[in-house]
Amino acid sequence: MMKIAVVVGSTRPQRRSRQVAEWVLSRAVARGGADFELLDLADYNLPLLDEPMPPSMGQYSHEHTKVWAEAIARFDGFVFVTAEYNHSVPGALKNALDYVYAEWNNKAAGFVSYGSAGGVRAVENLRLITAELQMAGVRAQVALPFATEFENYTVFTPSDDAEEALKPLLDQLISWSAALKTLRT
């Protein structure tokens, strides 16, 4: 069975990513086809990248990096739930991605974003970052504009369109996760 993490991509106080990630997780678990788990960056408290060697060397010296590497290595695919900060991803998400390298390789990535423009510019950046980490981003994605998907811009209230957009993302992610697993064995 594939193991897929739903990554809460913001650590900011009052963040919306946890609400969105819990929605993704609930729909994914109901769909089935893989074991899904929430992976909240706030639970790892990673400092700004502080490893002396490049992550591609795989020589992690700090305990927090080793714990993070073990967490990422357990999964076959990821749904990144990201806000859009200044036309890009939150710094905490970029930092978490940069911490390790081989643990991301040959795994599938799906993207759920939110923001004033649905977070699409964050996903554009995230696709480039994950490609450099040798991840395969699936085509389907979910973009959630604050104006239509969040009551008073704070409480996540997914529309029927959002619900429908999530289905192909999960379908593609599970398929790609299974296909890429053959490269890692």
Rank of each mutant, 00 (worst) to 15 (best):
Y99K: 05
N152I: 01
Y85Q: 14
S10A: 15
V20G: 03
V20R: 02
M53S: 14
S177W: 03
A92P: 09
V24W: 07
G110I: 11
D76F: 09
A162C: 09
E22L: 14
Y60M: 11
L38F: 01
A30Q: 15
Q59L: 15
V120M: 11
P54F: 15
K3M: 07
M57F: 05
R139K: 10
L48R: 05
D43C: 09
T11M: 00
E103T: 09
Y99A: 07
V81H: 03
L183E: 06
L97T: 01
G33L: 11
A140G: 03
E151W: 06
L41A: 04
V79H: 02
N95T: 06
K107D: 02
R139H: 11
A83G: 12
R184W: 06
G119N: 10
L38A: 00
Y101A: 08
A42D: 04
A102D: 12
R15Q: 11
D171A: 13
S177R: 08
G33C: 12
Y85L: 10
D35Q: 15
E84K: 00
L144P: 07
D50F: 03
Q14C: 01
V81E: 02
P168D: 13
G58F: 09
Y153G: 10
K107C: 00
R18A: 00
A30M: 11
A131F: 08
T130F: 00
N95W: 02
T185M: 03
G91T: 07
S116E: 13
Q14Y: 06
S17P: 03
A42V: 09
A136W: 08
P168H: 11
Y153P: 00
Y153N: 12
S26E: 08
F146C: 08
V155C: 02
L38K: 03
T11P: 04
F156R: 14
Y60A: 08
V138T: 01
S113R: 02
S17Y: 00
N106Y: 14
Y99L: 05
D160M: 03
R12H: 15
L126Q: 06
L93A: 05
R127M: 04
G119K: 13
T154H: 06
V20Y: 04
T185K: 05
T82Q: 09
S177Q: 03
A30Y: 05
L46S: 01
R12W: 13
D160N: 11
P90V: 09
S175R: 13
A140K: 04
F36W: 14
R16C: 05
Y101H: 12
T148A: 15
K107A: 01
A179T: 01
E163K: 02
D35S: 15
A147K: 12
G91D: 09
L39Y: 07
H87K: 11
Q141N: 11
L25W: 02
E22C: 13
L93T: 04
L169T: 06
Y85F: 14
T185D: 08
R31M: 10
S56A: 14
A143S: 06
R18H: 00
A131Y: 12
T65H: 10
E132N: 12
D161N: 08
G32V: 12
L166T: 07
G58A: 02
L126C: 09
V112A: 03
K181H: 11
P90K: 14
V81W: 01
S26L: 00
V79Y: 06
A30R: 14
K167E: 07
R31F: 01
P47N: 08
P55D: 06
R121F: 08
